[in-house]
Protein backbone atom coordinates (compact mmCIF):
# COMPACT_ATOMS: atom_id res chain seq x y z
CA UNK A 1 0.00 0.00 0.00
CA UNK A 2 2.81 2.39 0.94
CA UNK A 3 4.54 1.72 -2.37
CA UNK A 4 1.87 3.83 -4.04
CA UNK A 5 2.98 7.05 -2.33
CA UNK A 6 6.49 7.38 -3.85
CA UNK A 7 4.97 6.44 -7.22
CA UNK A 8 2.40 9.20 -6.83
CA UNK A 9 5.13 11.70 -5.94
CA UNK A 10 7.07 10.60 -9.04
CA UNK A 11 3.93 11.07 -11.11
CA UNK A 12 3.40 14.58 -9.78
CA UNK A 13 7.04 15.52 -10.48
CA UNK A 14 6.72 14.25 -14.05
CA UNK A 15 3.52 16.26 -14.56
CA UNK A 16 5.18 19.33 -13.06
CA UNK A 17 8.17 18.99 -15.39
CA UNK A 18 5.91 18.46 -18.40
CA UNK A 19 3.63 21.39 -17.61
CA UNK A 20 5.99 24.01 -16.15
CA UNK A 21 9.62 23.25 -16.84
CA UNK A 22 9.62 22.20 -20.49
CA UNK A 23 7.28 24.89 -21.85
CA UNK A 24 8.99 27.50 -19.66
CA UNK A 25 6.44 30.13 -18.79
CA UNK A 26 2.89 28.75 -18.74
CA UNK A 27 1.55 32.20 -19.54
CA UNK A 28 3.64 32.39 -22.70
CA UNK A 29 2.09 29.09 -23.74
CA UNK A 30 -1.36 30.65 -23.72
CA UNK A 31 -0.65 33.26 -26.37
CA UNK A 32 1.87 31.26 -28.38
CA UNK A 33 -0.29 28.42 -29.60
CA UNK A 34 -2.74 30.68 -31.41
CA UNK A 35 -5.53 28.68 -29.79
CA UNK A 36 -6.94 31.58 -27.85
CA UNK A 37 -7.84 35.10 -28.81
CA UNK A 38 -6.82 36.39 -25.41
CA UNK A 39 -3.75 38.60 -25.44
CA UNK A 40 -2.37 39.69 -22.10
CA UNK A 41 -0.55 42.96 -21.66
CA UNK A 42 2.75 42.81 -19.82
CA UNK A 43 1.23 44.34 -16.65
CA UNK A 44 -1.62 41.84 -16.71
CA UNK A 45 0.92 39.08 -17.17
CA UNK A 46 2.96 40.27 -14.21
CA UNK A 47 -0.15 40.47 -12.04
CA UNK A 48 -1.32 37.02 -13.11
CA UNK A 49 2.15 35.62 -12.51
CA UNK A 50 2.16 37.02 -9.01
CA UNK A 51 -1.31 35.79 -8.11
CA UNK A 52 -0.52 32.31 -9.42
CA UNK A 53 2.78 32.20 -7.56
CA UNK A 54 4.80 31.88 -10.77
CA UNK A 55 7.31 34.48 -9.60
CA UNK A 56 8.59 32.03 -6.99
CA UNK A 57 11.38 29.51 -7.66
CA UNK A 58 10.32 26.22 -9.27
CA UNK A 59 10.77 24.06 -6.18
CA UNK A 60 8.54 26.46 -4.17
CA UNK A 61 5.92 26.30 -6.92
CA UNK A 62 5.99 22.51 -6.80
CA UNK A 63 5.74 22.38 -3.00
CA UNK A 64 2.87 24.89 -3.06
CA UNK A 65 1.01 22.75 -5.59
CA UNK A 66 1.54 19.61 -3.53
CA UNK A 67 0.44 21.42 -0.38
CA UNK A 68 -2.75 22.56 -2.10
CA UNK A 69 -3.48 19.08 -3.43
CA UNK A 70 -2.85 17.62 0.02
CA UNK A 71 -5.48 19.95 1.44
CA UNK A 72 -7.91 18.92 -1.30
CA UNK A 73 -7.67 22.30 -2.99
CA UNK A 74 -6.87 22.06 -6.69
CA UNK A 75 -6.71 25.79 -7.33
CA UNK A 76 -8.80 27.74 -9.80
CA UNK A 77 -9.39 27.38 -13.48
CA UNK A 78 -7.30 29.95 -15.31
CA UNK A 79 -10.24 30.91 -17.50
CA UNK A 80 -13.44 30.70 -15.50
CA UNK A 81 -11.82 31.36 -12.09
CA UNK A 82 -14.10 28.59 -10.87
CA UNK A 83 -12.59 26.29 -8.22
CA UNK A 84 -11.33 23.13 -9.96
CA UNK A 85 -12.50 21.10 -6.97
CA UNK A 86 -16.09 22.07 -7.74
CA UNK A 87 -15.72 21.06 -11.40
CA UNK A 88 -14.23 17.69 -10.43
CA UNK A 89 -16.98 17.00 -7.90
CA UNK A 90 -19.66 17.87 -10.47
CA UNK A 91 -18.23 16.00 -13.46
CA UNK A 92 -16.37 13.21 -11.68
CA UNK A 93 -19.44 11.14 -10.79
CA UNK A 94 -20.51 11.04 -14.47
CA UNK A 95 -17.14 9.68 -15.61
CA UNK A 96 -17.02 7.25 -12.68
CA UNK A 97 -20.49 5.95 -13.57
CA UNK A 98 -19.46 5.47 -17.21
CA UNK A 99 -16.28 3.62 -16.27
CA UNK A 100 -17.92 1.36 -13.67
CA UNK A 101 -20.86 0.57 -15.94
CA UNK A 102 -18.44 -0.20 -18.80
CA UNK A 103 -16.51 -2.64 -16.59
CA UNK A 104 -19.77 -4.31 -15.51
CA UNK A 105 -20.93 -4.62 -19.13
CA UNK A 106 -17.55 -6.00 -20.21
CA UNK A 107 -17.58 -8.66 -17.48
CA UNK A 108 -21.19 -9.67 -18.09
CA UNK A 109 -20.44 -10.07 -21.80
CA UNK A 110 -16.79 -11.09 -21.85
CA UNK A 111 -16.56 -13.77 -19.16
CA UNK A 112 -19.53 -15.95 -20.28
CA UNK A 113 -18.54 -15.67 -23.95
CA UNK A 114 -14.93 -16.57 -23.17
CA UNK A 115 -15.87 -19.52 -20.95
CA UNK A 116 -18.46 -20.94 -23.35
CA UNK A 117 -16.05 -20.47 -26.24
CA UNK A 118 -13.41 -22.51 -24.39
CA UNK A 119 -15.82 -25.22 -23.23
CA UNK A 120 -17.34 -25.58 -26.71
CA UNK A 121 -14.04 -25.27 -28.50
CA UNK A 122 -14.06 -25.37 -32.32
CA UNK A 123 -17.85 -25.28 -32.52
CA UNK A 124 -19.80 -22.71 -34.51
CA UNK A 125 -20.24 -20.65 -31.33
CA UNK A 126 -16.49 -20.63 -30.72
CA UNK A 127 -15.72 -19.47 -34.26
CA UNK A 128 -18.35 -16.75 -34.13
CA UNK A 129 -17.08 -15.58 -30.74
CA UNK A 130 -13.52 -15.37 -32.03
CA UNK A 131 -14.56 -13.34 -35.06
CA UNK A 132 -16.52 -11.01 -32.78
CA UNK A 133 -13.55 -10.65 -30.43
CA UNK A 134 -11.17 -9.77 -33.28
CA UNK A 135 -13.69 -7.29 -34.66
CA UNK A 136 -14.49 -5.45 -31.43
CA UNK A 137 -10.87 -5.31 -30.34
CA UNK A 138 -10.15 -3.26 -33.46
CA UNK A 139 -13.12 -0.87 -33.38
CA UNK A 140 -12.18 2.37 -31.58
CA UNK A 141 -14.70 3.15 -28.83
CA UNK A 142 -15.05 6.78 -29.92
CA UNK A 143 -16.02 5.71 -33.44
CA UNK A 144 -18.55 3.23 -32.06
CA UNK A 145 -19.86 6.10 -29.95
CA UNK A 146 -20.27 8.34 -33.00
CA UNK A 147 -22.15 5.56 -34.78
CA UNK A 148 -24.45 5.05 -31.76
CA UNK A 149 -25.23 8.79 -31.69
CA UNK A 150 -25.75 8.88 -35.45
CA UNK A 151 -28.13 5.91 -35.45
CA UNK A 152 -30.10 7.11 -32.45
CA UNK A 153 -30.50 10.57 -33.93
CA UNK A 154 -31.65 9.21 -37.29
CA UNK A 155 -33.78 6.31 -36.11
CA UNK A 156 -35.25 7.50 -32.82
CA UNK A 157 -34.82 11.28 -33.18
CA UNK A 158 -33.08 11.12 -29.83
CA UNK A 159 -29.73 12.31 -28.70
CA UNK A 160 -28.00 12.12 -25.32
CA UNK A 161 -28.68 15.10 -23.04
CA UNK A 162 -25.82 17.59 -22.83
CA UNK A 163 -26.38 19.14 -19.41
CA UNK A 164 -24.95 17.62 -16.24
CA UNK A 165 -27.58 15.64 -14.39
CA UNK A 166 -26.50 13.56 -11.41
CA UNK A 167 -27.89 10.14 -10.65
CA UNK A 168 -29.35 11.37 -7.35
CA UNK A 169 -31.14 14.25 -9.07
CA UNK A 170 -32.88 12.68 -12.05
CA UNK A 171 -31.91 9.02 -12.43
CA UNK A 172 -33.72 8.63 -15.75
CA UNK A 173 -31.98 11.57 -17.43
CA UNK A 174 -28.66 10.57 -15.91
CA UNK A 175 -29.04 7.06 -17.31
CA UNK A 176 -29.55 8.51 -20.79
CA UNK A 177 -26.23 10.36 -20.50
CA UNK A 178 -24.23 7.46 -19.17
CA UNK A 179 -25.54 4.43 -21.03
CA UNK A 180 -24.21 5.29 -24.50
CA UNK A 181 -20.54 5.85 -23.58
CA UNK A 182 -20.66 2.88 -21.20
CA UNK A 183 -21.83 0.56 -23.99
CA UNK A 184 -19.32 1.94 -26.50
CA UNK A 185 -16.45 1.41 -24.05
CA UNK A 186 -17.82 -1.80 -22.53
CA UNK A 187 -18.03 -3.70 -25.80
CA UNK A 188 -14.38 -3.10 -26.63
CA UNK A 189 -13.30 -4.11 -23.12
CA UNK A 190 -15.57 -7.16 -23.31
CA UNK A 191 -13.63 -8.37 -26.34
CA UNK A 192 -10.31 -8.07 -24.46
CA UNK A 193 -11.76 -9.91 -21.45
CA UNK A 194 -13.40 -12.63 -23.54
CA UNK A 195 -10.10 -13.30 -25.30
CA UNK A 196 -8.23 -13.54 -21.99
CA UNK A 197 -10.95 -15.69 -20.40
CA UNK A 198 -10.94 -18.06 -23.34
CA UNK A 199 -7.18 -18.63 -23.42
CA UNK A 200 -6.97 -18.97 -19.61
CA UNK A 201 -9.91 -21.39 -19.50
CA UNK A 202 -8.24 -23.51 -22.19
CA UNK A 203 -5.07 -23.64 -20.08
CA UNK A 204 -7.06 -24.57 -16.97
CA UNK A 205 -9.00 -27.27 -18.83
CA UNK A 206 -5.69 -28.87 -19.79
CA UNK A 207 -4.45 -29.05 -16.18
CA UNK A 208 -3.97 -32.33 -14.33
CA UNK A 209 -6.41 -31.50 -11.55
CA UNK A 210 -9.16 -30.93 -14.08
CA UNK A 211 -8.49 -34.32 -15.62
CA UNK A 212 -8.53 -35.85 -12.13
CA UNK A 213 -11.83 -34.19 -11.32
CA UNK A 214 -13.33 -35.48 -14.55
CA UNK A 215 -11.92 -38.96 -13.93
CA UNK A 216 -13.58 -38.95 -10.52
CA UNK A 217 -16.82 -38.53 -12.40
CA UNK A 218 -17.44 -34.93 -11.44
CA UNK A 219 -19.52 -33.04 -13.93
CA UNK A 220 -21.77 -30.06 -14.19
CA UNK A 221 -21.78 -27.40 -11.52
CA UNK A 222 -19.66 -29.25 -8.96
CA UNK A 223 -16.86 -29.61 -11.44
CA UNK A 224 -17.15 -26.28 -13.15
CA UNK A 225 -17.36 -23.76 -10.33
CA UNK A 226 -14.51 -24.78 -8.02
CA UNK A 227 -12.17 -26.23 -10.62
CA UNK A 228 -12.51 -24.14 -13.72
CA UNK A 229 -14.22 -20.88 -12.87
CA UNK A 230 -12.13 -19.82 -9.87
CA UNK A 231 -8.86 -20.63 -11.55
CA UNK A 232 -9.84 -18.78 -14.70
CA UNK A 233 -10.85 -15.67 -12.82
CA UNK A 234 -7.45 -14.63 -11.48
CA UNK A 235 -5.63 -13.82 -14.75
CA UNK A 236 -8.82 -12.25 -16.02
CA UNK A 237 -8.83 -9.83 -13.08
CA UNK A 238 -5.20 -8.94 -13.79
CA UNK A 239 -6.08 -8.19 -17.41
CA UNK A 240 -9.00 -6.06 -16.28
CA UNK A 241 -6.70 -4.01 -14.08
CA UNK A 242 -4.36 -3.28 -16.97
CA UNK A 243 -7.25 -2.77 -19.39
CA UNK A 244 -8.83 -0.19 -17.08
CA UNK A 245 -5.89 2.07 -17.91
CA UNK A 246 -7.01 1.87 -21.53
CA UNK A 247 -10.57 2.42 -20.37
CA UNK A 248 -9.67 5.60 -18.46
CA UNK A 249 -7.91 6.96 -21.55
CA UNK A 250 -10.84 5.77 -23.66
CA UNK A 251 -13.37 7.70 -21.59
CA UNK A 252 -11.73 10.94 -22.75
CA UNK A 253 -12.32 10.22 -26.44
CA UNK A 254 -15.68 8.55 -25.94
CA UNK A 255 -17.07 11.36 -23.76
CA UNK A 256 -16.04 13.76 -26.49
CA UNK A 257 -17.80 11.64 -29.13
CA UNK A 258 -21.05 11.71 -27.14
CA UNK A 259 -20.64 15.28 -25.91
CA UNK A 260 -20.96 13.97 -22.36
CA UNK A 261 -19.98 16.54 -19.71
CA UNK A 262 -17.52 14.35 -17.79
CA UNK A 263 -13.92 14.73 -16.65
CA UNK A 264 -12.61 13.62 -20.05
CA UNK A 265 -14.33 16.37 -22.00
CA UNK A 266 -13.16 18.80 -19.30
CA UNK A 267 -9.58 17.68 -19.95
CA UNK A 268 -9.96 18.13 -23.71
CA UNK A 269 -11.54 21.53 -23.23
CA UNK A 270 -8.79 22.67 -20.88
CA UNK A 271 -6.12 21.45 -23.31
CA UNK A 272 -7.73 23.48 -26.09
CA UNK A 273 -7.82 26.52 -23.82
CA UNK A 274 -4.28 25.87 -22.50
CA UNK A 275 -5.72 25.96 -18.98
CA UNK A 276 -2.58 24.51 -17.41
CA UNK A 277 -3.71 24.63 -13.77
CA UNK A 278 -6.68 22.49 -14.75
CA UNK A 279 -4.61 20.15 -16.95
CA UNK A 280 -1.99 19.34 -14.34
CA UNK A 281 -4.59 18.60 -11.67
CA UNK A 282 -6.78 16.49 -13.94
CA UNK A 283 -3.85 14.41 -15.20
CA UNK A 284 -2.74 13.88 -11.58
CA UNK A 285 -6.28 12.79 -10.72
CA UNK A 286 -6.40 10.27 -13.59
CA UNK A 287 -3.03 8.80 -12.57
CA UNK A 288 -4.08 8.60 -8.90
CA UNK A 289 -7.27 6.76 -9.84
CA UNK A 290 -5.31 4.34 -12.02
CA UNK A 291 -2.85 3.63 -9.19
CA UNK A 292 -5.75 3.07 -6.78
CA UNK A 293 -7.44 0.65 -9.19
CA UNK A 294 -4.25 -1.38 -9.56
CA UNK A 295 -3.96 -1.55 -5.76
CA UNK A 296 -7.54 -2.81 -5.56
CA UNK A 297 -6.74 -5.45 -8.19
CA UNK A 298 -3.77 -6.62 -6.10
CA UNK A 299 -5.93 -6.83 -2.98
CA UNK A 300 -8.68 -8.71 -4.78
CA UNK A 301 -6.18 -11.48 -5.62
CA UNK A 302 -5.89 -12.39 -1.97
CA UNK A 303 -9.64 -12.54 -1.60
CA UNK A 304 -10.10 -14.89 -4.55
CA UNK A 305 -6.98 -17.01 -4.39
CA UNK A 306 -6.29 -18.49 -0.95
CA UNK A 307 -2.72 -19.30 -2.05
CA UNK A 308 -1.83 -15.61 -2.11
CA UNK A 309 -1.36 -13.86 1.20
CA UNK A 310 0.06 -10.45 1.84
CA UNK A 311 3.05 -10.58 4.16
Amino acid sequence: MLVAIPTLIGVSILIFIAMRVIPGDPLAMIGAQGQSTLVLSSEEKAAARKSLGLDKPLYRQYLNWMGDVGRGDFGHSFWSQEPIRKQILRRGPITAEIAILAVVISWLMGVPVGLLSALRRNTVFDHMARVGITLFMAIPSFWLGMIIVLVSVRAFVWRPPLAITQIWEQPAVNAQIVIGPAVALGVGLAAVIARMTRSTALDVLGEDYVRTARAKGLGGRKFFLPHVFRNTLLPVITTSGVAIGGLLGGTVATETAFGVPGLGSLLVQSINQRDWVMIQNLVLLYAAIFIAINLLVDISYALIDPRIRFG
Binding site: P6, T7, L8, G10, V11, L14, I15, A18, M19, I22, P23, Q33, G245, G246, L247, L248, G249, G250, V252, A253, L267, I271, R274, W276, I279, V283, Y286, A287, F290, I291
Partner: peptide, 24 residues
Protein backbone atom coordinates in the same frame (compact mmCIF):
# COMPACT_ATOMS: atom_id res chain seq x y z
CA UNK B 1 12.13 0.08 -12.04
CA UNK B 2 10.67 2.89 -9.93
CA UNK B 3 10.85 5.23 -12.95
CA UNK B 4 9.01 2.67 -15.07
CA UNK B 5 6.33 2.38 -12.39
CA UNK B 6 5.80 6.12 -12.59
CA UNK B 7 5.40 5.94 -16.38
CA UNK B 8 3.01 3.01 -16.07
CA UNK B 9 0.84 4.86 -13.55
CA UNK B 10 -0.54 7.00 -16.35
CA UNK B 11 -3.24 5.68 -18.62
CA UNK B 12 -1.31 5.58 -21.95
CA UNK B 13 -3.58 8.01 -23.79
CA UNK B 14 -3.51 10.52 -20.90
CA UNK B 15 0.31 10.39 -20.81
CA UNK B 16 0.42 10.97 -24.57
CA UNK B 17 -1.97 13.93 -24.21
CA UNK B 18 0.19 15.42 -21.43
CA UNK B 19 3.30 15.09 -23.59
CA UNK B 20 1.52 16.66 -26.57
CA UNK B 21 0.59 19.68 -24.45
CA UNK B 22 4.12 19.88 -23.11
CA UNK B 23 6.01 19.48 -26.38
CA UNK B 24 3.54 21.26 -28.66
Amino acid sequence: QRMLEVLMSFPALILAMLLMVSLG
